[in-house]
């Protein structure tokens, strides 16, 4: 099958790649761009481990083709920190021990940031239902919620 050339932006950098038209954005990120922060937990849009932002929309990168990234702007977990400076969400996830094996964490961080960007003052229920598409098998979610609520409160204070 002939390969497709794609020009896109990933975490603010202009990126060009070629891919098989059947390849998912997740496979492109992981195998071609060496950005392995997004994980494959199911490949069917049910677990959220592959969450990324595409033009300010939260998507499961396992459900989108790499070729569809043409002209779009992609943000992944790798772009969350600024150099050595962690994003407040990342700090709070560490502080609240909101992770165990950590493999769901990148997807949850990306999804949470998407929520806080559009709703800086979510209720706990809103957070719980927003994150219902991000499975975590280890933590039981409580510390995740605590970390999110705490970050939101801090960010509101800072703004």
């Amino acid at each position: 099958m002939s390969m497709i050339h794609v020009s896109t932006t990933v975490n603010g950098d202009e990126v060009d790649f070629v891919c098989d038209p059947r390849e998912t954005l997740l496979d492109v990120l992981r195998d071609r761009l060496a950005l392995t922060g997004a994980k494959e937990g199911c490949g069917t849009g049910d677990c959220g481990a592959c969450s990324v932002m595409v033009d300010d929309r939260l998507v499961c990168s396992c459900l989108m083709l790499g070729a569809e990234a043409e002209g779009k702007s992609i943000a992944t977990v790798e772009g969350l920190a600024k150099g050595e400076d962690l994003h407040p969400l990342q700090e709070k996830f560490i502080e609240h021990a909101a992770l165990q094996c950590g493999i769901c964490t990148p997807g949850i961080l990306v999804a949470t940031k998407a929520l806080l960007d559009k709703n800086p003052d979510p209720t706990e229920t809103e957070v719980r239902y927003w994150l219902a598409g991000n499975l975590c098998r280890c933590t039981g979610y409580d510390k995740i919620i605590r970390a999110v609520m705490d970050t939101a409160a801090d960010l509101r204070k800072a703004s």
Binding site: R30, L35, V77, L80, I94, A97
Partner: peptide, 23 residues
């Protein structure tokens, strides 16, 4: 002491390597 997971910083930055992430 209630210290966080040793790899927590790697986890939150997406740098923690699982088998499929090894280049």
């Amino acid at each position: 002491r209630p210290l966080p997971h040793d790899a927590a910083r790697l986890h939150v930055t997406g740098q923690a390597r699982y088998v499929d992430d090894i280049p």
